[in-house]
């Protein structure tokens, strides 16, 4: 279930820093629950739109790996953890609030 995308940074990106920064994202979901499916779709859309080809997304089904839930302090799902760049951030929910997702990822859109 792991998706691995690595693409060079686009010139017209909206990143505050011009340098190429790889977004390492982990999305924890639970099977095929409506929330999970929505979260995956929403997140993919956001990523494709704002950090296209500059992210690494790992989707983990917690049902399959229950141990990870404790290790990652998972309570609410779906959960997106941004490992880098910058400090680790946690985002929960189905990623339907794009502005919040971008804020959480540290991407500032012009909107």
């Amino acid at each position: 279930m792991t998706e691995h995308n690595q693409l060079p940074l686009n010139a017209d990106d909206n990143l505050s820093e011009g340098e190429s920064q790889l977004f390492r994202l982990r999305l924890f979901v639970i099977g095929a629950s409506p929330n999970s499916i929505r979260a995956i779709t929403n997140l993919k859309n956001i990523c494709e739109e704002y950090i296209k080809a500059n992210y690494e997304l790992e989707i983990i089904d917690v049902y399959q790996q229950p141990l990870i839930a404790e290790a990652e302090q998972i309570v609410a799902l779906p959960l997106l953890i941004k490992k880098s760049p910058g400090t680790e951030r946690k985002l929960i929910g189905d990623m339907s609030n794009t502005a919040k997702v971008l804020k959480g990822l540290g991407i500032y859109s012009e909107s």
Partner: peptide, 27 residues
């Protein structure tokens, strides 16, 4: 099992549930 929740670390971006807690507890 210590459950750590900090509002400042978490951004809510929409619908969610506590299934993670359930899985932890169940496990």
């Amino acid at each position: 099992d210590h459950v750590h929740i900090d509002r400042s670390e978490i951004e809510e971006t929409g619908e969610y549930d506590l299934e993670g807690l359930f899985i932890r507890l169940g496990y």
